[in-house]
Design a protein around this nucleic acid. Structure first.
Lengths: 217, 217, 217, 217
DNA sequence: AATGAATGAGTATTCATTCAT
DNA sequence: CATGAATGAATACTCATTCAT
């Protein structure tokens, strides 16, 4: 009892308050929804309203737009990573696991990453690196299995899949994405068919890694 | 061809002055470049500056952003239509013509249509209908030939190709697209491989027409 | 002396707790430093941070900015009064005592009073009257001695000295005052030379008392 | 003279419109008044209102607060320079000319320079250098004449006078300066008396040039 | 017709102050 | 008592659009 109290007092970061944590979660959730729907330029006041907090509360949690975007980006990546892990764990067929991940990632609105990554924010932040490394290694594993099974053409790399996946699932700005999804899954399916071995054409350029994307975005 | 179409769209009534016409062309050209590079939200003053005219001149030619966007959309579509016509005329192999068109359309920045179409503008305008009908029928012809030749899977429609094409070539907001292109052509190639007959999987949803897109955007 | 005066000013009623008193002192000290350095507009949160307390604690001790400013003003005046008392007690030469006080008051940042007095706060508060009366009578005594000794021109009053002293030592907003001090003491010295008898010119206006300043500020 | 200098500062390129020039003048005039009265932090909207223009017009003429402050600073310096020129031209007695300039500069609110110089703005701008060089050389000339005539003590430099002058005439924030002026001229007179030869005391520190001030401010 | 200038409405951001733990 | 969190009101700044030359 005494030691616990002393430890709490001596800690420099004294355990965030429960309601503040709840607010933070609600803000991130609201931001994710609105970024996906309207792009990363949405007014902060709208995000705050949707989250049910005052606008200044948002600034208490995230010093600027960049910080909020980063948090949402990491959150989306993490959710996609979870999907990748499930696909790896639960799917028997190697290419089937890849398919499952791609469609699941689409449902997690991974396409929203594109416009968000393009905005001004610190692309060197460790949280971001961590989230990217995680998703990258998981997708690499998915692709490696499919390649080993002879189901995936050999001239594609992680970056190829991730960028195309992001682009094909990228929301149309200003539109509710409701009936767009049905098309998206068709396009993904077609793209996946193009990924299958044997290769039906020779690809231009060189295989893209996530590193290349970091340079560009 | 494109100039003819554009001329038809201009006011036929009071015989436009030569310098006014030149200004109009320069504005559309500047807008196309900037829309592609920065998205359709670019400040009007910047477009005017790039075009080398005063901002009010821009308003003289285009009552609002919607009108300018529409003009640019039509212009991009027209240029893509030209590419489709050339592919039809000059390419022997049916699927090869389709491939050629897809890559050429990418170079014409057809991906910029997506964010532009999403903005608020009158999607019922006759100019737009005309340009869309033109590109649609041309692409349909390209696809029909490939299908007839047994090179194209039978469960895809024009809308599938056009939307995926737009999405895959869509510029990343805020970034010079320079080194992005090399990836884009890879993705297009993979997608085209997925379009080839025989179909490697069953597609979800139903084949998309351009009509469906009009509803959505 | 200053602690005694400060203690008298605190609520005598409910017997304040020891840590609360310590907090109050730390807040006043922090506020004095920051007012001098950045002016009286500094964010309350910053003062609280420098004092090492939460912002709400600050409000517990001082209902609003006016109250805090008043406390700091009194504190600065008290410290200057102490200097005046020492000069009176320890300095043999009458004008030398005046000189010593002026330079010592400058080092106590008495110039910070000007911007602080200008802000909105209750200039009728008894604490303020008390502190002002104290410094005024002390400076009057210093001047009276010098005048009696024939060292001080006869057409100047306390207000003349106090205002000029405050103005000449007033910090430049936004700048660390480090190397400014060396100039300040030169200016004070020149002003003091102008105060010496015999008068070298006829002064415009009338001799200023501290009462006049109260009206104005 | 001042108009000439101001004209030189304007863009030589596109020939400014008449009404725009009038607006610019009104904005600078309004800003000068309000900076003197309330300090350089006054809301831009208030300046615009006083100038009788919309707030955005203010931004058209001055990209940010720094630019407006710079213009006002130059304007105040130019007006003081004019006073120095008149004193040099019209006053027979050397020290009399210096006295006249000092009091006239006070009436031109030269004290407002202090808080304005402290704000964030580009202290390297050529306009500023020009205005400072002008006032500096004029005051140097005034002081040189008085020194040559044996009327000015030899251990003071331009910076000593300019800083003390600015400080002594510096407006009290938040107060209309109406009845403050009568005191100011007394203080200036006392300071001037202290400047007269023969020196009545030895000055601490070293003579200040305007260069030193540039470093500090 | 063409243009530079003016404007008001909208957004981001800060900060004093109140509230809940 | 002490505190971190929440909030709304204020301000800076941008940009589409209209006005005057």
């Amino acid at each position: 009892m005494v030691t616990a109290a002393a430890a709490e007092r001596s800690r420099p970061v004294p355990r965030p308050r429960a309601d503040a944590l709840r607010n933070r979660e609600r803000i991130v959730a609201a931001a994710r929804e609105m970024f996906v729907e309207f792009g990363p330029e949405v007014p902060f006041d709208e995000i705050a309203r949707r989250a049910g907090v005052g606008n200044a509360t948002l600034y208490r949690h995230f010093a600027d737009r960049a910080e909020l975007i980063r948090e949402v980006v990491c959150s989306v990546m993490d959710r996609a990573s979870e999907q990748a892990e499930r696909a790896l764990a639960e799917e028997g067929d190697a290419f089937g696991a890849l398919r499952r991940f791609v469609h699941a990632a689409a449902d997690e609105r991974i396409g929203a990453l594109c416009p968000m990554l393009a905005g001004d924010f610190d692309k060197e932040h460790p949280d971001l690196d961590e989230a990217r490394d995680r998703i990258e290694s998981l997708v690499e594993e998915l692709m490696a299995r499919a390649r080993t099974a002879g189901q995936l053409r050999t001239d594609v790399a992680v970056g190829d899949l991730m960028v195309a996946l992001s682009q094909l699932t990228r929301p149309l700005p200003g539109s509710g994405c409701v009936n767009f999804d049905q098309f998206v899954h068709r396009h993904l399916q077609l793209f996946l068919d193009g990924l299958q071995a044997p290769a039906r054409s020779e690809l231009p350029g060189t295989a893209a890694t996530l590193e290349d994307l970091r340079q560009r975005a």
